[in-house]
Design a protein around this nucleic acid. Structure first.
Length: 107
DNA sequence: AAGTTGACGACGA
DNA sequence: CTCGTCGCCAACT
């Protein structure tokens, strides 16, 4: 019941991320009911070649680091998109303290 | 069915 | 702070 929907849940979560905010793989995994499945989350996003529809560039690692192997155009492209949305990207790192998306309804 | 891979996370050096 | 290893889960071969 969740196995097949796993990726679907991840995609839905990524789409829920508001502009100018970022979310971590582990955070998404935990929200969809699969804590610790951060790897599986990243794997699912890798399959998503529809970056236009799913803002996978808003998804970063737990330490605020961008994807080391971003499919579309590499970390540089992802960084570019984040900056374009108002996210301050330092090298390959973003300020999770300021840009990490938190849903007030979830808390 | 079993083994390996992969856009990760945490811990140790 | 950076690099290396083990452990996590789901998907692929």
């Amino acid at each position: 019941m969740s196995r097949t929907n796993f990726k679907e849940k991840v995609f839905a979560m990524v789409r829920r991320i508001p502009c100018g905010k970022v979310e971590t793989y582990g955070g998404i995994a935990e929200r969809i009911g699969h804590p610790g499945a951060a790897r599986a989350v990243g794997n699912a996003l890798h399959e998503n070649t529809d970056g236009v529809r799913t803002p996978c560039h808003r998804v970063v690692s737990g330490q605020g680091r961008l994807a080391p192997m971003y499919v579309f155009g590499g970390t540089a492209e992802q960084k570019r998109r984040l900056i374009a949305e108002g996210v301050e990207v330092n090298g390959i790192r973003v300020d999770l303290k300021k840009y990490l998306w938190k849903d007030p309804s979830d808390e």
